[in-house]
Amino acid sequence: MSITQQHLLDAYRARSLGEPVPPAPGTHDRRVVRERCDERRFRAVLSGRPARHGLRDVLGRWRRRPS
């Protein structure tokens, strides 16, 4: 069963029971990724390591690199 089929089944079941319909798959993906990055930075600071911004740091270094 695909994720779309599972969502449709869950939505049908929720409607028939009078419960709120669950969000569609992929609705909160961006927020989850952002929260995970924030958590990794927070844990780095707690353990005494510098909090880095990953892709943003790499792109900044490439821009500042002498030609």
Rank of each mutant, 00 (worst) to 15 (best):
A11E: 03
D57I: 03
S2C: 08
G60N: 04
G54D: 14
I3G: 09
A51H: 05
H28R: 07
R64D: 06
P50E: 10
A51D: 05
V33I: 11
R34L: 13
Q6C: 05
E19P: 01
R40A: 13
E35H: 10
R30M: 06
R61M: 06
A11L: 11
A44M: 15
Q5Y: 00
L59W: 12
W62A: 10
G26P: 01
V32D: 08
Q6F: 02
L59Q: 10
E35D: 15
M1S: 09
G18S: 10
D57W: 03
T4S: 08
E19C: 09
E35W: 03
G48C: 11
Q6L: 06
R31Q: 08
P66H: 02
L59M: 15
A51I: 13
I3V: 10
T4N: 04
S47A: 14
L8I: 10
P22T: 00
R49K: 09
C37E: 13
A51L: 14
G54H: 12
Y12M: 11
R52W: 05
S16T: 05
H28Y: 03
A51G: 15
L59I: 12
R36D: 13
G48Y: 01
R61I: 08
R43E: 04
S47E: 08
G26E: 01
P22Y: 00
L9Q: 01
W62P: 01
H53V: 14
P25C: 07
R30K: 08
W62Q: 07
T27N: 00
E39T: 14
R61Y: 01
T4W: 02
E39D: 13
S67T: 06
R63C: 06
L9W: 00
V45F: 04
L9V: 04
Y12K: 05
V58S: 13
H28G: 07
G60Y: 00
G48L: 11
C37Q: 09
V45Q: 03
R36W: 08
R49M: 13
G54C: 15
R41C: 11
Q5I: 01
R56C: 11
S16A: 11
R13P: 04
L59S: 14
R65L: 14
R13H: 02
P66E: 07
S16P: 08
R34N: 10
M1R: 10
P20K: 06
D57K: 03
D10C: 11
C37Y: 13
S47G: 12
R49N: 04
R40I: 13
I3A: 13
